[in-house]
Design a protein around this nucleic acid. Structure first.
Lengths: 333, 333
DNA sequence: CTGAAAGCGCTTACAG
DNA sequence: CTGAAAGCGCTTACAG
């Protein structure tokens, strides 16, 4: 087994003190350039790397960020995680990924674990249960430790911290206007996750545009995931519409299948637009138009904001709005 | 800011030494039950939690596992990660998730980072580039540190360590036999990732069964992901078959869309079976039959094996074969 | 410019 | 049964 080099070993070989070695490696101005050179050469030769555990203990800083993700099987979150990971590793931070599985209890548990493990900060999207029960005590508690917290996508006004969010309301308005421009008369809106803050915002966007244009909109909000399929099928049977906005990935995907089931022609008789540019949209038949939330970018931005905050705790909490793009594909044109 | 309680503070309040407090909290037999009780009560009152950074430094153990995942946007890996995370957190281990993005260089970088961060062990699936270039030096290097490594799904014989794998060959044989029982005569096999060890194994399974039954099989192996769609469409145009096995998620999904495009009736004129029970299969129309690799279970098992190895380094490396299940849905019956 | 010493928060072999 | 001391591998204020 290869032995890890330590400062002590280097100092012995170089006949200088451990302090000198440490300072030299950290480019301290106290040390002569000659010594610095000697030290660094030997360190390089031995492939010396400081033990991060010891550095953490001394500096009270772990270069670790805790991430709370509600559901990794959701493409949007997978992409955000991808972005977070990329940006964090670029800046020399590790991430501890915690999957809360949409559960409030797991969220509480993990938050405690992360606190206990001395992460330098936390990035989180609230679990579904947390948003439904509106229990944010654990986050408030965490905030009182004076450690930075950045909330993204699934957020709440109840917690005072940096927030990164998608402009869901505007995105939904864009979709609506796009469909109106196509002269679609009867617009339907479907979601399988009506309790989430993002879905509420999207619905609001649609409704705002609908009111402005005096358009009637049919909505189907399904709170029990398991009924989604039959409810959407019934909706297709009983209502008539020539455009459908799926406020979440699942809703749009089920709808496109329902259309096939009832042999509705897409996009001629029905235009479908979904949210989240994930696998389901790209592999749909026909390919689905969607609002892309630029999830990878969003993940990167979340990390940037957290690191700024770690460096400067006195900044005022801010909101960063991630712009969206409407990707037009065969399901709507 | 809330102040973290330390052993020193407790020892001062209790008028005993730091050593005694430490031993009491660790239930040392050296300490009187009375003292243990006193110490624990105060510790509880103050919500004392040992600083894991200090414990790690002392014990040379971080209770952290490094995870190398080639692509988190792939449903199979997302599910495995889910399982890993669940089992690890159950056993008090944190995970550091690294996404290699199918790149050999990133894999090397991360492996070094994980080593440097003193993880207690590593769980990895090889990146595509690693499998293509057959460069495993970084893993061999890591092994020489005497730290446990468990490889899952994407593995190689070149590295001597514990391995967890899906019985891909057998799974493919099961699929083939299932289709034969349905009296399907012309079986096609398609993959968009022919370089991966798992795909090779699946193809081998199909071929073995085909030889045994003297069945002719048409294969389409696409190595450039971007051509996949047009190649599969051409395949549909030029060849005729009444059953298709998609050796990966994408291949099966594109195939089912091609069938719709050419108005081939599923499952009457064409039965389709894919691999990986992911979103694409569940949301396909008609719903797709697939081989489920029980990814979540697989993730859990990987962690179990790693922790066994951490506790007993002298065990002989073993192979764990995760059984699969054929899930029959509307695309084939 | 260099080094001895203290300390981060723990654990544990040893002494009493 | 309890405690003093050493030590994990670093950093840094202080002295020289």
């Amino acid at each position: 087994m290869k032995q890890k080099t330590t400062l002590k070993q280097l100092s012995k070989e170089l006949n200088v003190s451990v302090s000198t070695v440490s300072k030299a490696l950290n480019n301290s101005s106290e040390i002569s350039t000659k010594t610095i050179k000697r030290v660094k050469e030997l360190a390089k030769l031995y492939g010396y790397k400081p033990n991060p555990v010891a550095v953490s203990l001394k500096r009270n800083k772990t270069f670790t960020i805790g991430i709370l993700i509600p559901d990794i099987l959701n493409h949007f979150f997978a992409k955000v995680l991808h972005g977070i990971e990329e940006q964090a590793s670029l800046k020399g931070y590790k991430i501890i990924t915690c999957l809360t599985n949409e559960s409030l209890d797991k969220e509480k548990e993990y938050l405690e674990m992360l606190e206990y493990n001395k992460v330098d900060g936390i990035i989180a999207a609230l679990s579904k249960e947390t948003q439904v029960k509106e229990d944010f005590s654990h986050f408030k508690n965490f905030k009182s430790l004076d450690k930075p917290l950045v909330l993204f996508d699934r957020i709440t006004d109840e917690i005072d911290c940096d927030k990164v969010l998608v402009d869901d309301q505007k995105a939904a308005q864009d979709v609506f206007e796009y469909l109106k421009e196509q002269n679609r008369k009867n617009i339907a809106v479907v979601s399988t996750l009506p309790h989430l803050s993002v879905i509420v915002a999207r619905l609001q966007g649609v409704m705002t545009s609908a009111n402005q244009t005096s358009t009637n909109v049919k909505t189907l909000m399904i709170s029990e995931t398991k009924d989604a399929e039959s409810k959407i099928n019934d909706f297709f049977k009983n209502e008539s519409f020539d455009a459908l906005i799926g406020l979440d990935e699942t809703a749009a995907s089920i709808a496109i299948n329902a259309a096939k089931h009832y042999q509705v022609k897409i996009p001629k008789d029905l235009a479908i637009v979904g949210f989240t540019d994930g696998l389901l949209a790209k592999n749909a038949y026909p390919k689905m138009s969607v609002v892309s939330q630029h999830a990878i970018e969003l993940g990167k931005n979340t990390v940037k904001i957290l690191l700024e905050r770690i460096e400067n705790k006195t900044l005022k909490p801010k909101r960063f709005i991630q712009p969206t793009t409407l990707i037009k594909r065969a399901s709507s044109e």
